[in-house]
Design a protein around this nucleic acid. Structure first.
Lengths: 201, 201
DNA sequence: ATAATTACATACGCAGCGTATGTCAATTGA
DNA sequence: TCAATTGACATACGCTGCGTATGTAATTAT
């Protein structure tokens, strides 16, 4: 039989490299992942890596882009499940916290990503998951459900709080219990932004 | 004259290494700082480094400990300048944001530190600057000025928000303007935690 | 059919790290 | 006071891992 078209082979090669790198970065961290090792694991060499991604860093960018797309899709799925916009927003944030509990996301997106690529805000494709939060907040403000003067700024703060919450949870002795505390405190924090804020929780 | 006592010489050596490493880590980042280079800059060799700190990572820990102590002292100084406890707390948070604007703090404490040592919450000496925020919040709650069920959890969220805010500011095109937005949004966020929350800012 | 480009693999050199070892001064003990 | 020992470094060595330069076979263009 005739071989697959070339473009498809290339896409496969790139996908293999991204997958192998993602696994290695997630398992041992970016710095400890040997290019020779994980390219060999994918049946390739460093030559392919440099050709397609320019280097280790370029490959990390590709991995991050992939993970970010998955996260964004998951977040959108969460908020879509709630008819009440406010509740949708809150659960979206909670979903963000919970995703960041996954070791791969933590290691790659929260630790190595910022350290290697500089901080996330000037990544080529500014993380979709932050944009997602911003958009949700903007909608709430437009609907008069949130009393916030600057939705974008607030969204950034909120995403920062979520991120920190998940780091905290993931490294506590009792993640279950800590998760409950963090989510509760987080909901309280958001409640303060709501129109007509009924302060006692 | 007789030489200085040995213990003093040792302290000097350690201090020289920490200072040289701090400068190098802050300037080019942990990964790009060559041990040979910056030890030579301090008039020493890698031998001294391994002897005193066990390795590059141990030296990073020492640098972080030093910076964290400075940050904590500065934060305490800030909150002490305000007689109103609530205002003191707010300004302490703002101070945290502003400190994180300094490239050295950003690079070492916020980017490389977490990536190399794992996330901050299980660092040997859990960052004093976070503890400082927690204590301030606890006092506010005790005074009935803040309506928060779990001060520690809330302090972590707040510090996460501050941290993110400073990353945002530092990388914006117009740090001045962004800083104003971030601080404003941040104050609004905190306002929501206040007892009797008057929501409109 | 031949030229040019693409998609990799191979080969090479070098920087940076960790360890093993050496050395000299300072302290300790009799 | 004078070994003996410990501590504080420097030196030497080998190895890993990265980036680049080069090679080569397959595809595409002319």
């Amino acid at each position: 039989m005739a071989h697959k078209p070339r473009s498809e082979m290339i896409a496969e090669t790139r996908a293999k490299l991204v997958a192998a790198a993602r696994e290695a970065f997630g398992r041992v961290g970016y710095a400890n992942a040997s290019m020779d090792d994980f390219t060999a694991g994918a049946g390739l060499t460093r030559g392919a890596l440099y050709h397609h991604f320019g280097g280790k860093q370029g490959l990390l960018e590709a991995v991050i882009t992939q993970i970010d797309a998955e996260m964004t899709a998951r977040l959108n799925g969460v908020s879509a499940r709630f008819s009440d916009p406010w509740q949708g927003f809150v659960e979206e944030c909670v979903g963000y916290i919970e995703m960041a509990l996954e070791p791969e996301i933590q290691r790659i997106m929260l630790l190595d990503g910022p350290a290697v690529l500089g901080n996330p805000f000037n990544w080529p494709n500014q993380p979709g998951c932050i944009r997602s939060l911003t958009n949700s907040l903007k909608r709430l403000v437009a609907d008069g459900q949130a009393d916030v003067a600057d939705p974008e700024a607030t969204a950034r703060l909120v995403s920062g709080a979520s991120l920190h919450a998940s780091l905290w949870i993931a490294n506590s002795d009792d993640p279950e219990a800590t998760s409950k505390r963090a989510v509760a405190a987080f909901k309280r924090l958001l409640e303060g932004l709501r129109t007509g804020a009924p302060s006692s929780g």
